[in-house]
């Protein structure tokens, strides 16, 4: 019910190493999770027009910067959650961890190394919000 795309192919593997901050299980390798996609508010299926529904299904923001996105912790708590990640650096910005409901970033913990492809443009980091749902 959450995603607009399906990456549920049976032999699916992750190729890019990254730790994803699950709010229930803590940092997990991204191969333990399934990427659901950009987090968009779903319109009311009973009130929506076909055009609006297609817009919800298909249009993507795809920024090179802050992105609110949904992950599914398939090998752990099996919960959906939403976090904000910088798509240019793969750093998670402001995320909750177990026992840390404020969502403050632990400065001693690095999710990915800081080397970044220099040619990638970055946009401003306006969205500093964190939200969990299930």
């Amino acid at each position: 019910m959450f995603g607009t795309r399906s990456f549920s192919f049976s032999f699916e593997r992750s190729a890019l190493m990254m730790l994803v901050p699950c709010p229930h299980c803590g940092p997990r390798n991204n191969s333990d999770l399934r990427y659901v996609g950009e987090s968009h508010a779903r319109p009311d299926p009973n009130a929506v027009t076909p055009e609006e529904w297609r817009a919800y299904l298909y249009w993507e923001d795809n920024p090179a910067g802050s992105l609110r996105e949904t992950w599914y912790c398939r090998a752990g708590c099996r919960q959906y959650f939403t976090v904000t990640r910088n798509t240019a650096t793969n750093e998670f910005e402001n995320h909750p961890l177990p026992g840390n409901k404020t969502g403050a970033v632990d400065p001693s913990f690095h999710y990915v190394s800081s080397s970044v492809s220099p040619s990638v443009p970055t946009t401003s980091n306006a969205a500093q919000e964190t939200e969990t749902n299930s």
């Binding site: 990456f7 699916e12 593997r13 992750s14 190729a15 890019l16 190493m17 990254m18 991204n30 191969s31 399934r34 990427y35 996609g37 950009e38 795809n62 090179a64 992105l67 996105e69 798509t87 240019a88 650096t89 793969n90 080397s115 970044v116 492809s117 990638v120």
Partner: peptide, 21 residues
Amino acid sequence: GASVDPFATYSMKGSLEFTEE
């Protein structure tokens, strides 16, 4: 060649996990 990485990103970093698989 392989499949696309399973989440959206503009980062073109390679990984050991990829070569291993």
